[in-house]
Design a protein around this nucleic acid. Structure first.
Ligand SMILES: [Mn+2]
Ligand SMILES: [Mn+2]
Ligand SMILES: [Mn+2]
Ligand SMILES: [Mn+2]
Lengths: 219, 219
DNA sequence: CTATAGTGTTAGCTTCGTCTAACTTTATAT
DNA sequence: ATATAAAGTTAGACGAAGCTAACACTATAG
């Protein structure tokens, strides 16, 4: 079955809204909002996708991907994250620049292209944002992620991923001199607003609770 | 100006039909034929492209790209050939497999992507088919190409490019064990049908005049 | 239980890029 | 010079994907 780029993007959006942030029962409006289209457009597309048996959905009901729909979405995510890895490790792209270009590259299907790219990159398990890269068979281990906000004072941690991967947030990280695998020490937590004083590369910086909840760390 | 993939493909086709194989005055039907669409479709698109001042064309007149239209086409060819080089030199693609995938990749515009790719590849001058890769400013030197058919008997030559880059022809070359930079010796020319006996890697093979006219050689 | 807010659907319109069928203009061959 | 062939255009239709405005169903709060 030959899918359009629009159809593919809807499937990936549905994957993120249902399976990925688990047990959330997404509706037409959320989907439309997520993709920046009108609810009417999303509704029309849902009918087309149901016709192709990629999504399970009945009038006024909740949205769900079919098995084949979700396989397609996982393949897209695989391509997306492999390209992000390539851009980051070989083409000098910044952490905050890769997503946008990968949004385009992910729509190129050639199986040989992707398997060769994967091998060229040395079969990476995670992309530059710390997200797991699905294998060709669709299997992948979702990394166990703890937020910076959840760590005890005094602990030394390493950034492994971000929850909010918006350009705005990634740029903010960059401007602080933080990036994937930066080492951070938690110095102090201010009870007043739950902001946290962190130390890294000699610097001490205060970050908000919201910030700390959007940074995933290990260790 | 934001162009659709269809619009881009028309511009590239026009470039190949007019500027590249020079002084041929292409018409609506050739364009349609080349792209595999109906003459009516090509006609409709030509009107849209004229509206955007990318093509010069009046009813029943001959087709010509404007300066901006031809700049866009050259940029596409630059992207196409850089990707072909990447697929060939880093992802183990065969000579006959790269074109199809590059047809997709060429539509991704990110300037950083292309300049970084070019630098990653070491600023190649020619793609794996021996065609010149335009620089970012649009400049490129069209290689002087002699056909295998035009060479004198006894000469030893090297394949630098092919005129017909259809998948069928490239596969045929592959099946003969020929590829870019293969060394060939011209053994005999049969006046009856202008076919040529060639020798390479120990083998002797007879190839048609048509074949020999579609292989470019140096030396 | 009902009023209302929120969510989802329909109807009807638009643009893009394609098609076929019919028509017009230009080129060619006798 | 004219008849025919070839090339090019127009008219009208269609599917994909989007929109707005109006309507319908569902959920929630009094
Ligand atoms: Mn991404
Ligand atoms: Mn996408
Ligand atoms: Mn090519
Ligand atoms: Mn193309």
């Amino acid at each position: 079955m030959e899918l359009s780029i629009a159809e593919e993007n809807y499937l990936k959006a549905l994957f993120h809204l249902t399976i990925e942030q688990k047990n959330s029962k997404a509706g037409t409006n959320q989907l439309a909002e997520y993709l920046g289209v009108s609810p009417a457009s999303a509704n029309a597309m849902l009918k087309r996708l149901r016709e192709k048996e990629l999504v399970k959905y009945e009038r006024y009901g909740k949205l769900e991907l079919s098995a084949s729909g979700s396989k397609i979405a996982i393949d897209m995510i695989r391509r997306h994250r492999l390209w992000e890895s390539f851009l980051y490790t070989h083409l000098n792209f910044g952490w905050d620049e890769i997503h946008e270009v990968a949004e385009q590259l992910e729509h190129i299907h050639s199986a040989k292209l992707i398997s060769q790219l994967e091998s060229f990159l040395g079969f990476p398990e995670y992309d530059p944002h710390g997200d797991a890269i699905p294998k060709a068979d669709g299997k992948y281990k979702p990394a166990i992620k703890k937020t910076l906000a959840s760590m005890p004072l005094g602990s030394k941690v390493r950034i492994v991923a971000v929850k909010d991967s918006s350009v705005a947030f990634l740029r903010y990280l960059n401007s602080l001199g933080l990036m994937l695998s930066s080492e951070i020490e938690l110095k102090e937590r201010r009870e007043f607003d739950q902001s946290i004083q962190i130390r890294y590369e000699g610097k001490e910086v205060n970050v908000s609770q919201k910030f700390a909840e959007n940074v995933y760390v290990s260790g």
